[in-house]
Simulated assay, not measured.
Amino acid sequence: MTLSLSPALRDALERWLAERRGLDGAAENTIAAYQTDVAGFLGFIARHLGGAAGVDQIAGLTQSDLRAWMAHERGRGVAARSLARALSAVRQFVRWLAPRHGFDATVVLSARSPKYQRKLPRPLSTDAARDVLDGVAEHGQQPWVAARDTAVVTLMYGCGLRVSEALSLTGRDAAPGQVLRITGKGGRERIVPVLPAAARAIAAYTRHCPHELSAADPLFRGVRGGPLSRREVAKVMERTRLSLGLPASATPHALRHSFATHLLNAGGDLRAIQELLGHASLQSTQVYTAVDTARLMQVYNAAHPRA
Rank of each mutant, 00 (worst) to 15 (best):
L242K: 13
Q92E: 06
A248N: 09
G225I: 11
A26C: 14
G225K: 10
A84H: 04
R224I: 01
G135D: 11
A266M: 06
K119C: 06
R95K: 14
A12K: 00
E275L: 15
S258L: 07
G160V: 06
L264D: 11
E165W: 09
L42F: 00
Y34L: 09
H72I: 01
S125I: 06
I191H: 04
I58Y: 00
W69R: 07
H208T: 05
L246E: 09
Y288P: 12
L167Q: 10
Y205R: 06
H257A: 08
A280V: 14
A79M: 08
G140F: 10
L180Q: 06
L17M: 08
W16D: 01
G50M: 05
E232M: 14
A32G: 13
T251I: 09
T106P: 01
R81C: 04
S214H: 05
Q298W: 02
S164W: 04
Q142Y: 12
Y157L: 14
H101P: 00
L264A: 12
G171F: 09
A266H: 15
P218V: 09
H48G: 03
S82E: 08
R190S: 12
I31L: 15
L3S: 00
A12E: 00
R81V: 09
R15C: 02
A68D: 14
A33D: 10
A302L: 11
A204T: 03
V192T: 09
L180F: 06
R239P: 08
V107Y: 01
R148W: 09
V136D: 11
T62N: 03
V107W: 01
D56C: 01
V145C: 00
L244W: 10
S164C: 07
F220P: 03
H279Q: 12
V153S: 05
A86E: 01
E212N: 03
A248P: 01
P121Y: 13
L161K: 07
R241I: 05
R100Q: 15
S82R: 13
